[in-house]
Amino acid sequence: MKLLEILQNIDRRIIYLILALSIILPLLFPIGFPVDITQNTQDVYDLVDKLPAGSVVLLSYDWDAASAPELLPQAEALTRHILDKKLKLVAIALWNQGATFADRVHNTVAPEVGAVYGEDYVNLGYRPGQAVVLNSLARDIHATFPEDVARTKTASIPMMKDIRSIEDIDLVISLSAGDPGLRTYIEQIGAQYPVTITGGVTAVSVPGMLPYLQSGDLVGLLAGMSGAAEYENLIDRPGLGLGGMDAQSISHLVIIAFILIGNIAYLAGGRKKK
């Protein structure tokens, strides 16, 4: 009986320790579970893939360092695909750290695909003001983002000469860890302008985005690290996303195991203990 009591009241530090091991060990010794492509990821891929060369994609970095493990792999995979397809990429950020991550992604991907700053891609950086920034950007990108991150005048950047308002954008992608983010784009841009909106979110935000997917306001969705892993599979470039999937799988199993242990002990112990 004592064992049942212990199993019902496992110290939280023991739970933390076992969970930590379940994350660290698969990262050190990968298992390589196969990753299947979901329809939502396929839809995002198709949107980018079907755009003709020269089309303009707005990629919004609406996240911070905390969400980087989930959204940085998504950003890398998407940027690689966009620049590889010879599309024009305009990166902006509604979160202040987003611009730094945009720089990092560009520095990694651009040399690999031979993209040139100012001609193929640009990083306009962060503006405070949240939803208001999107309303303003839709009317006039140059006024909302007068300079890029390196403080070059937006008007003097070659590729930005013809990209002035939301009407010059062919696809909006928001990678978001919350608001302002994908939902803000749907409500402020999607509701007012005829531009397709897609994006990626952290796994915890997925249920909140499902109604928008069903209503068609949002087309396709990358869901957390698994979304990144699937996209990496689609562009055939394994990266950070696929690398983290084993750890995610095993840690999910560990959490389920703890829930089941607690319940079995609870039921076997006659439901007396809290």
Binding site: F33, P34, V35, D36, A203, A223, S226, M245, Q248, S249, I250, H252, L253, I255, I256
Partner: peptide
């Protein structure tokens, strides 16, 4: 939870 990971499908 199992549906969200590759191991679930396995």
């Amino acid at each position: 939870m199992l549906g969200a990971t590759p191991i679930g499908a396995k």
